[in-house]
């Protein structure tokens, strides 16, 4: 009975849906607010993300004639599920409580969960493409194509950058990589290049400015989501924002040492500060640049980022061997 309760608690409250939902709204608000201040605007009040979500949930849900109805309904759910599942393996890694040396609150941590998380992380990208492809509008088809091209551009450097900490610490478990850093040094100090590449990859994955190519509003409306409305759109937005939270958590664990050897209270605080730092980097990056074109991004991905990632990996292997 107790196991049941704790499993339900983990799934729906912490670190599951409820926690991520709050984090997603908070991150969205901070991001919008910071970007607004940097652009000389005021930005929305704190409840705006929640209000947007509620409003969209309540709005009429329409799809154009010819759109694949059940697929369009299933895709946001599938990608939301993928993100939520990934979140179960990415601990807001509290230090082991009650002798659980596998990584505390991460409910289902195991050796190799990094691979699973990276796989789960690609599902929203594919679902996003399919959403564009199946919802008949030209804008969404073009946006879908672009999102797939973008996926090929950022995914390889992103994966290689994330493999760095795993290779160096000799473990494929996110919580173990995080825990190990508190004994040695933060990965960001050993492989700053990898961290930078991971941030750039994350911006591409989250389709944030300057890589908001698939949903460039002055070019193709809302991209793949052009024809979505009401609940489906609300779920899509929620998915994308949760993906941002989970992505940030992942980077904190892999590169910034999770929350180190602290007791739960300070640990939560420290983890939050680190996550906030990455969020600020993302926000600042989103106001600093003009949007790239898809071919320019592909060039950047393969001619600059991928070789750099390779270089970083070679350095890591050399360090690891030496």
């Amino acid at each position: 009975m107790n196991d049941w309760l704790s499993a339900l608690f983990a799934l729906f409250i912490f670190p599951g849906f409820g926690f991520l939902f709050v984090c997603a709204l908070a991150c969205q608000w901070i991001d919008r607010r910071v970007a607004a201040r940097l652009q000389g605007r005021i930005g929305p009040p704190w409840f705006q993300p929640l209000a947007d979500f509620v409003k969209l949930m309540a709005k009429e849900d329409i799809l154009p004639v010819g759109a694949h109805e059940w697929a369009c309904a299933a895709l946001p759910l599938v990608s939301l599920a993928a993100v939520l599942t990934a979140a179960l393996y990415i601990p807001p890694s509290f230090p082991p409580i009650g002798g659980d040396e596998r990584g505390g609150w991460a409910t289902s941590a195991f050796e190799g969960d990094l691979i699973v998380v990276l796989f789960l992380f690609s599902i929203p990208a594919l679902a996003y493409f399919l959403a564009g492809w199946l919802s008949v509008s030209v804008f969404s088809v073009v946006g879908g194509n672009r999102s797939l091209l973008q996926y090929f551009a950022y995914e390889v450097p992103f994966l290689m950058a994330l493999c760095g900490p795993a290779i160096l610490s000799g473990s494929w478990s996110i919580s173990r990589i995080a825990a190990q850093q508190s004994q040695t040094v933060w990965m960001v100090l050993v492989q700053p290049l990898g961290f930078l590449l991971a941030i750039i990859g994350l911006i591409g994955k989250l389709k944030r400015s300057p890589f908001d190519i698939p949903k460039a509003k002055s070019e193709i409306g809302a991209g793949p989501l052009t024809e979505f409305s009401g609940r489906k759109l609300a779920l899509w937005y929620l998915t994308l924002h949760m993906q941002m939270v989970v992505g940030i958590f992942l980077l904190v664990n892999l590169f910034l040492g999770g929350c180190g050897n602290w007791s739960p209270g300070p640990a939560a605080l420290i983890f939050g500060v680190k996550a906030l730092l990455i969020l600020l980097v993302l926000s600042v990056a989103s106001v600093l640049y003009a949007r790239l074109r898809i071919d320019q991004l592909a060039n950047l991905g393969w001619r600059v980022l991928a070789p750099l990632a390779l270089l970083q990996m070679l350095v890591i292997i050399w360090i690891g061997v030496g």
Binding site: Q39, G40, S209, D212, A216, S218, V287, L288, R291
Partner: peptide, 16 residues
């Protein structure tokens, strides 16, 4: 122009 090439910041500054 800045908004059309996705450079929102310049757009905001120029209009401010």
């Amino acid at each position: 122009l800045a908004e059309n090439v996705g450079f929102t910041t310049i757009f905001m500054y120029a209009w401010r």
